[in-house]
Write a protein that binds this DNA or RNA. Structure first.
Length: 725
DNA sequence: GGGGGAAGGACCA
DNA sequence: TTCCTGGTCCTTCCCCC
């Protein structure tokens, strides 16, 4: 087995690092020339420039840390390998052979999959619209980050995902063009229109890539062609027919030539319409088509014959980094095991199977024999939605909460556009040292409005600040939602309905007095992750002035001001207390609107709602929908409006008998000034079989400062599997 | 031990 | 001086039953 961590420039132990830290180029920061137009570059020179302009920066230090973590993982992995007994290796080998046999039997060579990839898409669009840029090194993006570069710039080592200032060092004459997504979307739509002619179910991957399955198209083309041929044949002499070998081209329709012709035609059409070139790969599955599309870039295509022999030959010497899903970390880990090509995967399959997860191991086995997915995913339902911003480092809490608020506003807009809602709210932060953290909270119902999201985000940020004793410098904040559902009426209706149904169901099975007593006696947990507790400005102050554990007193730019100046006290408290924020916003409530998520704010709102009596009908209309126990005729709106039941105590009211003010008083007494979340928590004490109980308890336990996760050697994380499923 | 939430990380365009 | 944004998937840890 190859020695681990032997990459040319990396240093693995502390001593090694100290010795080399001014000269070593981190592999994870080195030029990735795995991109078209970047072959034969002077990597050493380019890496030197990258290194010189990065070393010592916070970003570099963080990369170094991450690199060390990967090295540690590799070290553990190798120790694991060392310990493998011959018996274990034998077993592992047997298992992989069984898997390979199964995979082989499932090999599908019948589909013709095309991967279309626009060449240097954004850059080409800009060049097309501004011909002056042609023949000059140019890149699209800003000084912070490039999205892509043209092929001339690539000769200097300038590529996507490179910060602009480093690109400028590599190529001082580089022209930077700002992004113009509107334009790229337009061109992308034109391309998609063409692709749809060949496969209406094609699968777009971003703006500049797509997979198509042209098997049906080829078949149709073949039968059309055959029909034409029949007409020709009837008109021609049989002898002539036999003597004319060109008729044998029929046999090729549906095979290489026909597919190649079709893809050629497709690319020509794209060029005609957009004046841009595209490259393509034609193979029997998405994995091979994707790799193939890179073979003759730019403006070229590669056809891989659908035979086992051709496929095996194709993958044999394929560098693992060319495989979609294998990034710099996985590559480094595999390299440490002596695996550089797909053939190496096959040769080392027993070890790989022993040290990697089954998901990873199986994916590697599929790769090494060239098996991939033949099913194109249609635009699948999105799973999450988020927005984030990078800014200059900030340490002022008020600014942080302000940013969160702005982001929640932006998220709300996106969420509305996407017509979704989410159960899990996630706060993402990147510290000034580039450390990335996420904190999330799963609610009991989907949310989508700023007034619903922000209190949760503020709570998460507040907890994070508390965990860090107020000493945080952030360079990025992101907010997001996951566990999405459509924001249609049904899900909108869920919020209070959910609780009401739960409480009612519980009440049916529990003694009412016992439940009421439980509510009354339940303890209020201000730190619960499910309640929106506030940090007072004085707490905030104490947090901010605390020394750091690492001994140094980190620079606090505005920290002291944020907590001590009178001008900051009010906004600070406002921002730190989600209740405050929520209460004065238009939040959907059980009385006047369809949903409500922050229950602290709900309480406040109920006070206001009671005063605003003209909401009465609104409440009743909504409430009748969620009240299923009322004996009303669902077809009779008048009847629906007349009767409803308190979700907490089952008391029935008629709209003639109660005003919202009265109702509010009633709810206040029912809730006992606690949140519904607390109610559910208390309720959970009675319902051992209730799965939500688990959720509530768990959440309350995991509230407060997030637990420290133990850093352990883990098997590499793999998104790789999705390419081979 | 399994289920599920939280958190972190790899990877992609 | 300066290293993005938005998304998916996988894994581990931990709690609870």
């Amino acid at each position: 087995m190859n020695s681990a961590i032997s990459s040319e420039n990396d240093v693995n132990d502390e001593d090694g690092f100290e010795r080399n830290k001014n000269t070593a180029v981190l592999s994870r920061m080195a030029l990735n020339d795995n991109k078209a137009g970047m072959k034969g570059l002077d990597k050493e020179k380019i890496n030197k420039i990258i290194h010189e302009n990065s070393v010592g920066s916070k970003f570099y230090e963080n990369e170094r840390k991450k690199d060390a973590q990967v090295d540690a993982r590799i070290q553990k992995m190798l120790e694991q390998v060392e310990k493998l007994t011959p018996e274990q290796m034998e077993t592992s080998l047997c298992r992989t052979n069984v898997i390979l046999k199964e995979l082989e039997s499932s090999r599908d060579l019948s589909r013709t999959i095309v991967h279309i990839d626009m060449d240097a898409f954004y850059a080409s669009v800009e060049e097309r619209d501004n011909p002056e840029l042609k023949n000059k090194p140019m890149a699209v993006g800003g000084s912070d980050m490039l999205s892509t570069s043209n092929y001339i710039a690539r000769r200097y080592g300038v590529r996507a995902a490179m910060p602009g200032f480093i690109a400028k060092k590599l190529c001082p004459e580089l022209i930077l063009v700002p992004l113009n997504f509107g334009k790229y979307r337009e061109v992308s739509a034109q391309v998609r229109e063409i692709l749809a002619e060949y496969d209406s179910n094609f699968s777009p991957m971003g703006l500049d890539e797509a997979y198509l399955d042209i098997t049906s198209y080829l078949k149709t083309k073949k039968s059309t062609s055959m029909a034409n041929e029949t007409i020709i044949k009837t008109n021609a002499l049989k002898e002539q027919d036999e003597m004319n070998p060109s008729h044998q081209s029929d046999e090729k329709i549906g095979s290489g030539t026909a597919a190649e012709e079709v893809v050629n035609e497709m690319r020509s059409k794209i060029q005609q319409v957009t004046q841009l070139t595209a490259s393509a790969g034609i193979a029997c599955n998405t994995f091979l088509a994707k790799v193939a599309s890179d073979m003759n870039k730019p403006n070229g295509q590669f056809y891989l014959e659908p035979t086992r022999e051709s496929v095996m030959e194709f993958v044999k010497n394929l560098p693992i980094r060319k495989v979609p899903g294998i990034g710099k970390v996985t590559e480094k880990m595999l390299n440490a095991l002596g695996v550089k090509t797909c053939q190496d995967i096959y040769d080392n399959r027993a070890v790989l199977h022993a040290v990697f997860s089954s998901v990873m191991s199986n994916s590697l086995l599929r790769i090494c024999i060239g098996i991939g997915s033949t099913i194109l995913e249609n635009e699948s339902e999105r799973k999450s939605i988020s927005t984030e911003r990078t800014f200059r480092d900030i340490s002022n809490h008020q600014e942080m909460f302000q940013k969160c608020e702005e982001l929640c506003e932006a998220l709300e807009a996106d969420v509305k556009k996407a017509d979704v809602k989410g159960m899990t709210v996630t706060l993402k932060i990147k510290t000034a040292a580039f450390e990335l953290h996420t904190r999330s909270k799963t609610l009991f119902y989907p949310v989508g409005c700023k007034s619903e999201i922000y209190p949760v985000i503020a709570d998460l940020l507040k907890q994070e600040l508390a965990a860090n004793k107020g000493q945080m410098k952030l360079r990025l904040i992101g907010v997001g939602l996951s566990k999405l559902s459509n924001a249609g009426k049904d899900s909108q209706q869920k919020s209070l309905d959910y609780f009401i149904q739960k409480v009612k169901a519980k009440k049916k099975s529990q003694d009412t007095d016992t439940l009421a007593s439980s509510i009354k006696n339940s303890e209020y947990h201000p730190d619960s992750s499910l309640t929106s507790s506030a940090v007072t400005s004085s707490e905030c102050e104490s947090i901010q002035t605390t020394d750091l554990e690492d001994g140094g007193q980190r620079e606090i730019v505005n920290g002291a001001n944020a907590s001590t100046t009178s001008s900051n006290e009010e906004p600070s408290e406002h921002i730190l207390n989600p209740c405050n924020d929520a209460a004065d916003k238009e939040i959907n409530c059980p009385i006047c609107e369809k949903e409500f998520n922050d229950l602290c704010a709900l309480n406040k709102h109920l006070d206001e709602c009671g005063i605003t009596q003209n909401n009465k009908n609104g409440y009743l209309e909504e409430h009748t929908e969620i009240e299923e126990n009322n004996s009303v005729n669902n077809n009779d709106l008048t009847q629906q409006i007349t009767c409803f039941t308190c979700p907490l105590c089952n008391a029935t009211f008629c709209c003639q008998d109660i005003t919202l003010e009265k109702f509010n008083t009633h709810v206040d007494s029912c809730l006992n000034r606690k949140t519904i979340m607390e109610l559910v928590k208390s309720e959970s004490n009675y319902a051992n079989s209730d799965s939500e109980k688990t959720k509530t308890k768990r959440n309350s336990k995991t509230s407060g400062p997030p637990r420290k996760r133990q850093k352990t050697m883990s098997k590499p994380s793999r998104t790789i599997d999705k390419f081979f499923k």
